[in-house]
Design a protein around this nucleic acid. Structure first.
Length: 793
DNA sequence: TTAGGGTTTG
C-alpha cells in the first residue's frame, strides 16, 4: 500500500521539497526580502507583506477535499520562541489549499520546521475550542504564498514508517548512463545554452548543453508555454537539476527533451557562492545530499570547464566580434517589421563613435530626460527577426544580458570616420538572444552599484577610454606614437633563454608535447576581458583553483559567527589580553578582541596581531587599517577557533588570506602562541598559516591568450603570481591604481579596435604539455619566463 | 508542433 502510493507520488510530477538543516540552522537562506514575524504580531490590521512566520509542526490532519474539489490540508505550528514565555498561546492553525495542500501533505513530518510567507490572516473560528491563536493563516499557490520546509535528513526506514506521507527520494542519472526512451532526473553543468526564445510553434524554447564529471555531453531541447518554467540560466557554468526529463536518441546521440512534469532548479556555478536555487516552483525538495552535489559539481567545473567567454563592457568592445553584454534598458523603439531598437547602457563609454539608429521620436519609449542625460553612454542595438517579439515585451529599466551581439564597423557617406554598429542578428546560433536578469543576480547588483557611481558630467566628455584618462597620455597623438613604438619592438621580453631561436606557431602546433619554445606572436584576443575575473586562488598542494570569495560571503559567515557569544573563560591568557563589550543597538551584539602579546608584552598597534569575535565586516575592515593582522575567530567551550575556511583566516593590510579547505587541518589557536613567544615576530602570513595548520591559497592571474604569427594560432595560458605583469595578483583586487595599470598594459599588448597588422609583437617563452583523461588527449600551452617590457608598464 | 548548439550579411 505504501509503496503503491510512493510510486504514485513520483509519477505525479510533484516537486514537494525540503531544505536542509545543519546544526539547527538552515544553510539555504530564505529570500532576503522576507522578515520574520512573531506570533504575537499575527493580528488583524498588521501588514504581513514580506513577512514570514516560522514554527514547528506539532500536528497535521489528513489531506481532505473541500466540497468544490479543492485539496485542503491543516497543520498546527508551534512557535518555539514563545514556548517558555508567560503567554499560554503558542500554537497556530495553518490552512493550506489546492496544490500546495497536496504537496505539503506528502512530505511534512512531525517536528519539521515550517516557514510560510505570503499568507492571508483570518479569525480562527475554532480558537475557543482548540485554545490556539485567535487567528489562522491561509495559504495557497493562487494567493502567491510560499512554503519552505526544513527537515532533518530522514533515513529510508524513517520514511517507511512516517504516518503522514513519504518524501520522494530522487535518483539522479549520470550523463554517461542515459538510455533511449527513459525519463530521468539529472544534474549537469551548463556548457552552452540558448536563452528562452519564441519558437515557430506555440511555445518558448531553450536549448541547453550539459556536461558532468563523466565528461559526457547532453543537449536538451526544452519547451514550455510558460517562460518562467524554463531553467533560469544566465551564464555558462551555471548548474542545473532537471527532474523528469525524457531521453531520446537523435542522430546517434542522446538528447534530452521536456516531458510532462518537467521541473528544474538552477544554481550559480561559482565555487563558494550561496547555494540558492533559481526556480519558479514555490515548493521543492532540497536536502543535504543535493547541496553536496552542487558543491561537488562546482569544484569539478572550476577545473574542467573552460573559462567562460568575454563578458565585455562597452568600453572594451572591438569591431567585428561577438560578445555578451550585461546592461540596463533605457529606451526602445520600433524600426520596421523585422527589426527593433534597444537603447542600453552599462555605465562605460564605447571608445568608438557609435551609430544612432534613426527612429521617429514618438516611437521611442523611455524617460526622455534620462535618454538625453545618458545620450553619450547609451548604445543602439538593433535586434532582428525572431528577437523582435521578445524585445518589444521588455520593460524599460530592466537589466538584460544580450548574448552574442555583433559589432560591425561601418561608415556613412557623410561621416569622416567610421562608426561601430551593434546588431543582434536573427536566429539563435551560439546562443544569440536576450535574457532578463533579476535584480538579485550578483552581476546586476554589481552593475547597479556601478551605474549609480557614474558621474554624468564625466560622460559628457567626447572620449573617455581609461588609457587617456590615466594621465599618462596627454593626447590621442601620444597614445598613437606609443603604440607605434610598440609595433616595432616587442611589448614583452624573455627573462631567460635569450639565446634560443624563434619557432613558428605552425611548427609548434604540429609537434608533440612536452617541449619549450621561444615565439614571436601577436595577441589577437584574450580571456577574460573583465580583468578582475582573471584573479583566482590557487592551492599549490592539491593544485586546485577557485574563485576569490566575495565580501558578501565573508559578511554572512561573520554574521553567522555572532550566534555564539564570546566565552569569557577564554579571555586574558598568558599570551593575549582581551577586551569585550556589548553594542548599544537593539541587537546587543557582544564583541571581543584579543590582543596577542609578544614576549608577554603588548606591542604597538601597527605590529600587533589581534583576534576578533562577533565583529561585522566593517569593524574587521577598520581594524585592519590600524593593526598589523586580524584573525576572525569564535569561541568554543574550551578554545578559540577559526571560522569556516570560506572566510579569510587572516587579514593583513588590504589582503585577505584564504586557506584550502581540502588541504588544511586547522590546529588550535593556541599554536599561535609559539610565534607570539618570539621577541619581534614578523607575522608572516605563511608562518601564521603553517602554525595554524592552514594550507594557504595564493592569488594568481589566469588568462588565456590567443596568439597568432601568420603561420597559425594557438591558445596559451598565463599562470602568473606577479612576474608577467609585475603586479602582485594578491593586491590587484583592492587597488584601483594597479587595476588601471593592468588595464593599460592589456590595452598595449592588445590595443582595442586594431587590425591584425597593427597589433604589437610579443616575445614569449611557452611550454607545451599533455593532458589526458579516459577519453581525450589534448596539448596545452603555457607562457612562462616572460614579462611585460619595462617601458610598457 | 516547436528544435535538434557552432554567428548575419539588415
Amino acid at each position: 500500500m505504501l509503496s503503491a502510493s510512493r510510486s504514485e507520488t513520483e509519477k505525479a510530477a510533484m516537486p514537494v521539497q525540503l531544505l536542509k538543516i545543519i546544526k539547527g540552522k538552515s544553510e539555504t537562506p530564505l529570500p532576503s526580502h522576507l522578515q520574520k514575524e512573531d506570533l504575537k504580531h499575527l493580528q488583524e490590521g498588521f501588514d504581513h507583506t514580506n513577512k514570514y512566520f516560522q514554527g514547528i509542526v506539532i500536528l497535521s490532519y489528513p489531506l481532505t477535499k473541500l466540497r468544490d474539489g479543492t485539496d485542503f490540508f491543516k497543520v498546527v505550528l508551534q512557535d518555539l520562541d514563545n514556548v517558555h514565555r508567560s503567554s499560554r498561546i503558542n500554537s497556530i492553525n495553518i490552512l493550506i489549499y489546492g496544490k500546495m495542500a497536496e504537496d505539503c501533505a506528502k512530505i511534512i513530518r512531525h517536528g519539521d520546521t515550517f516557514v510560510v510567507a505570503g499568507f492571508k490572516l483570518a479569525k480562527s473560528p475554532t480558537a475557543r475550542q482548540d485554545g490556539r491563536h485567535a487567528c489562522h493563516l491561509e495559504v495557497s499557490e493562487e494567493a502567491g504564498s510560499a512554503i519552505y520546509i526544513y527537515t532533518k535528513p530522514r533515513t529510508n526506514a524513517a520514511s517507511e514508517t512516517a504516518s503522514v506521507s513519504v518524501a520522494p527520494k530522487y535518483a539522479y542519472t549520470p550523463l554517461n548512463h542515459l538510455k533511449d526512451g527513459t525519463i530521468v532526473n539529472l544534474y549537469g553543468v551548463v556548457k552552452f545554452f540558448k536563452p528562452p526564445y519564441v519558437s515557430k510553434g506555440t511555445d518558448y524554447c531553450s536549448v541547453v548543453t550539459l556536461v558532468d564529471p563523466s565528461n559526457v555531453k547532453l543537449t536538451c531541447t526544452l519547451f514550455s508555454g510558460n517562460l518562467d518554467s524554463l531553467p533560469k540560466i544566465y551564464k555558462v557554468g551555471d548548474i542545473v537539476r532537471f527532474h523528469r526529463i525524457k531521453i531520446r536518441e537523435y542522430n546517434g546521440q542522446m538528447q534530452g527533451i521536456t516531458s510532462v512534469g518537467f521541473a528544474s532548479l538552477t544554481f550559480d556555478g561559482t565555487v563558494g557562492a550561496p547555494v540558492v536555487p533559481r526556480t519558479s516552483s514555490k515548493v521543492y525538495t532540497f536536502m543535504d545530499e543535493e547541496q553536496k552535489t552542487i558543491e561537488e559539481l562546482r569544484v569539478w567545473a572550476a577545473s574542467n570547464l573552460s573559462i567562460s567567454g568575454p563578458a565585455a563592457k562597452l568600453s572594451g568592445v572591438q569591431p567585428m566580434l561577438f560578445f555578451d553584454l550585461t546592461c540596463q534598458l533605457v529606451g526602445k523603439a520600433k524600426v520596421d517589421g523585422s527589426s527593433f531598437l534597444l537603447k542600453v547602457w552599462d555605465g562605460t563609454k564605447c571608445p568608438y563613435p557609435t551609430w544612432k539608429v534613426p527612429v521617429e521620436a514618438r516611437d521611442l519609449e523611455g524617460e526622455k530626460v534620462l535618454l538625453h542625460q545618458l545620450r553619450n553612454l547609451t548604445v543602439d542595438i538593433l535586434v532582428y527577426d525572431n528577437h523582435v517579439q521578445l524585445a518589444k515585451s521588455l520593460k524599460i529599466g530592466s537589466f538584460l544580458r544580450i548574448y552574442s551581439i555583433h559589432t560591425k564597423q561601418a561608415s556613412a557617406d557623410n561621416e569622416e570616420v567610421s562608426h561601430i554598429e551593434f546588431h543582434l542578428h536573427g536566429g539563435t546560433c551560439y546562443g544569440r538572444g536576450i535574457g532578463v536578469l533579476p535584480e538579485s543576480n550578483p552581476d546586476v547588483k554589481e552593475l547597479k552599484a556601478f551605474l549609480e557611481s557614474v558621474d554624468l558630467a564625466d560622460s559628457q566628455m567626447e572620449s573617455m577610454s581609461s588609457v587617456e584618462l590615466d594621465g599618462t597620455f596627454n593626447s590621442v597623438t601620444d597614445l598613437e606614437s606609443h603604440l607605434q613604438r610598440c609595433q616595432q619592438l616587442s611589448v614583452t621580453v624573455l627573462t631567460d633563454h635569450q639565446d634560443l631561436n624563434n619557432t613558428e606557431l605552425k611548427t609548434i602546433l604540429n609537434s608533440t608535447a612536452p617541449q619549450q619554445y621561444r615565439i614571436r606572436a601577436k595577441l589577437r584576443t584574450y580571456k577574460p576581458q573583465k580583468l578582475y575575473q582573471s584573479i583566482k586562488l590557487h592551492c599549490s598542494k592539491c593544485n586546485s583553483l577557485q574563485e576569490v570569495p566575495d565580501g558578501e560571503n565573508f559578511d554572512l559567515i561573520l554574521q553567522g559567527s555572532t550566534v555564539t557569544a564570546p566565552n569569557p573563560e577564554l579571555h586574558n591568557t598568558s599570551w593575549y589580553d582581551s577586551a569585550m563589550w556589548t553594542t548599544q543597538d537593539q541587537k546587543q551584539r557582544k564583541i571581543a578582541i584579543h590582543f596577542v602579546k609578544c614576549d608577554e608584552m603588548l606591542q604597538q598597534p601597527e605590529d600587533t596581531l589581534l583576534m576578533i569575535e562577533g565583529g561585522t565586516l566593517k569593524e574587521v575592515w577598520k581594524l585592519t587599517k590600524r593593526f598589523k593582522c586580524v584573525i576572525p575567530v569564535r569561541s568554543t567551550k574550551d578554545d578559540l577557533e577559526l571560522l569556516d575556511l570560506s572566510a579569510p583566516f587572516l587579514l593583513q593590510g588590504n589582503i585577505k588570506y584564504y586557506g584550502c579547505k581540502q588541504c588544511s587541518t586547522p590546529k588550535s589557536i593556541k599554536s599561535l602562541s609559539s610565534i607570539a613567544a618570539e621577541q619581534r615576530p614578523s607575522w608572516e602570513p605563511t608562518e601564521i598559516a603553517q602554525v595554524l595548520g592552514i594550507e594557504p591559497l595564493q592569488y594568481v592571474f589566469i588568462m588565456k591568450f590567443t596568439l597568432v604569427d601568420g603561420t597559425g594560432a594557438l591558445n596559451a595560458y598565463l599562470f602568473d603570481y606577479e612576474k608577467f605583469f609585475q603586479i602582485p595578483a594578491s593586491e590587484i583586487l583592492t587597488n584601483n591604481f594597479l587595476q588601471q595599470k593592468m588595464e593599460m598594459t592589456m590595452n598595449t599588448l592588445c590595443p582595442p579596435g586594431r587590425k591584425l597588422d597593427d597589433l604589437p609583437w610579443l616575445e614569449c617563452f611557452i611550454k607545451s604539455y599533455n593532458v589526458r583523461d579516459a577519453t581525450k588527449h589534448r596539448v596545452y600551452y603555457q607562457i612562462f619566463d616572460t614579462t611585460v617590457a619595462e617601458d610598457v608598464v
